[in-house]
């Protein structure tokens, strides 16, 4: 077979390569442009009728969780949040819930049933959710003491991820520049694949030094 004839089958290689590359990617992982940016200000009413302003929480590590009572994937992570609230009670740590596409009655019933003393905000017209580029629930934002979004988790958080993120943010100084970690927009997974999310190698992206060096 001549060289020219070999070119015909060779034309298949780029197509195969592209498909093979596709297999290594998860189409549901969308990189959020938000980590590293200042958390957008908002104020809203909680389920108990108080008003909370995000700006008032400056100085604390804020774990902001978008959830709904109809969201099955939210059940498990809720337990971790209850646990974290107790664990970090003496630290500069604040849990903040934001109710996504749900009625206040249902949301209140859920909080009574599953525990948790943190404020959960009602989000009229989903304005906060859109502002934060929420794809669906659950989604969780980790905001550092300086009021910057350090990390966004799409899908439920695992206990390990929650502790890791909160610990590292608590350890960081309240002022100063963003570290490489915080700026690195980590690919995160949308949708309900709890097993998947837990498997993510959180340690890797959490080491500031290793990230900066190629």
């Amino acid at each position: 077979m001549s060289f020219k004839k070999l070119l015909i089958p060779a034309s298949a290689i780029p197509i195969i390569a592209l498909l093979a590359y596709g297999l290594t990617r998860d189409p549901n992982k969308i990189e959020s442009p938000l980590p590293g940016r200042e958390a957008f200000a908002f104020s809203s009413e909680t389920l108990d009728g108080d008003t909370v302003r995000l700006a008032d929480l400056r100085g604390s590590v804020v774990v902001m969780n978008f959830w709904a009572s109809w969201c099955v994937a939210c059940i498990e992570e809720h337990g971790y949040f209850v646990e974290a609230e107790r664990l970090y009670a003496d630290s500069d740590f604040q849990m903040l819930g934001i109710v996504y596409q749900d009625t206040p009655e249902n949301a209140r019933r859920w909080m009574r049933m599953r525990g948790g003393d943190w404020p959960s905000l009602i989000d009229p017209n989903s304005r906060i959710a859109i502002d934060y580029g929420v794809y669906g629930v659950p989604e969780t934002y980790f905001i550092d003491k300086t009021g910057r979004i350090a990390f966004k988790q799409i899908g439920p958080v695992s206990r390990a991820l929650l502790h890791q993120k909160v610990d590292s943010l608590l350890a960081a100084p309240a002022t100063g520049d963003l570290t490489a970690t915080e700026r690195s927009a980590e690919a995160i997974s949308v949708g309900e694949s709890p097993g998947h999310v837990g498997d993510q190698p959180v340690e890797e992206s959490d080491r500031p030094t290793s990230e900066g060096q190629p």
Binding site: L6, I8, P9, A12, I16, L19
Partner: peptide, 24 residues
């Protein structure tokens, strides 16, 4: 299933093109 399919697509594509080149 993805890798299986990709393997089969590769096989079909290469086999067809080789046959075609052989008969040009």
């Amino acid at each position: 299933i993805g890798p299986f399919f990709l393997g089969f697509i590769t096989f079909v594509l290469l086999a067809s093109l080789v046959l075609l080149a052989w008969r040009t």
